[in-house]
Amino acid sequence: MKIAFSPCPNDTFIFHAWVYGLIKGAPKLEVTYADIDVTNSLAADTGGPDVIKISYAALPWVLSEYALLPCGGALGRGCGPLLLTSDKLDTACDPKMLAGRRVAVPSERSTAYLLFRLWAAQKIPGGVGEIIVMPFHEIMPAVRDGSVDAGLVIHEARFTYHMYKLTLMVDLGRWWEEDTGLPIPLGAIVARRSLDLTAVTGWIRDSVRYAWAHPEASRDYVLSHAQEMSPEVVQAHIKLYVNQFSENLGETGYQAVISLLSRASEAGLVPDATLQKLRW
């Protein structure tokens, strides 16, 4: 079975047991490790992987071929994307200063960018000047070096942006939580509708539970794919992004997904994605 997910600690921690053949009855995996912008594109291809990690923002475009699985993804509180600026640009107190500026984002179909667009529609009436897509690990250096004026970052960047002497303009996850009272949906696990979705869901849940029961078992595997992170940052990353919703979205999780995609659809940013399309 072909699967694609990021090399980030939360994904490698979750899927370690399945990748290493530790889940009873689960088929052998052929893994592609790729940045979220790449996996979003893979899901849009007719020959994409059987199971894939994508942004929730990309979900409406792939629902005809892929089904949302209620586990394995990234959804939670206090884990949203951050909008960062350089100390050289005094924008921290006035988002309108971003009007006409260059902003780097990790993917045009990322949840981070979708949240940014919803936030910017309220805070920057004139809009930013130019959106530049780049791999998320290149964004903070680009902001620091002045090649872009602001950057939208995800994952472990919330633990490391101070190292680049960057300034937090807004925590978009906090903005979302205060506005809706709901957790923020970041990354979804989807599987081809032709598969036995109940079985795939069970294998992923078993892999999550194995990871929790044997946290040291995946250590070398996780660290090997997180080469630029310290072990402390890796553990903080896992603790933040692997939570109750990783095992089961539940009603709160589905409510958060519907709220995000409904708002985005009403704003004309994504196709309509009803609850009926999200459940199977």
Rank of each mutant, 00 (worst) to 15 (best):
F5N: 12
S6W: 02
P7D: 08
C8M: 08
I14D: 01
F15Y: 15
W18G: 07
G21S: 13
L22W: 07
L29A: 10
E30S: 12
D35S: 04
I36V: 15
D37H: 11
N40D: 13
A43P: 04
D45W: 00
G48P: 12
I54K: 04
I54T: 11
A57Q: 02
L59M: 02
L59H: 05
V62H: 01
E65N: 05
E65K: 14
A67N: 06
C71W: 00
G76E: 04
L83E: 07
S86K: 02
D87S: 13
D87I: 11
K88A: 15
D90L: 14
A92P: 03
C93V: 13
P95S: 08
L98G: 04
R102G: 04
A104H: 04
Y113T: 15
A121Y: 01
A121K: 14
G127R: 11
G129H: 11
V133M: 03
M134L: 14
M134Y: 05
M134V: 09
F136W: 13
F136I: 06
I139M: 03
I139F: 05
A142D: 04
V143Y: 08
R144N: 03
D145A: 09
S147L: 05
V148W: 05
L152H: 10
L152A: 07
E156A: 15
E156G: 11
A157W: 01
H162I: 05
L168C: 07
L172K: 09
G173V: 02
D179N: 13
P183F: 08
P185A: 00
P185V: 07
G187Q: 11
G187W: 00
I189A: 01
A191P: 08
R192G: 05
L197Y: 09
T198W: 13
D206C: 00
D206A: 15
S207C: 14
V208E: 07
V208M: 09
A211E: 09
E216I: 01
S218P: 04
V222C: 08
L223Q: 15
A226N: 13
Q227M: 12
S230M: 03
P231F: 07
V233A: 09
Q235F: 03
H237E: 11
V242E: 00
N243E: 01
N243H: 09
Q244C: 00
S246P: 05
N248E: 12
L249G: 02
E251N: 14
Q255H: 12
A256Y: 12
A256W: 10
S259R: 15
P271H: 02
A273T: 06
R279G: 03
R279K: 15
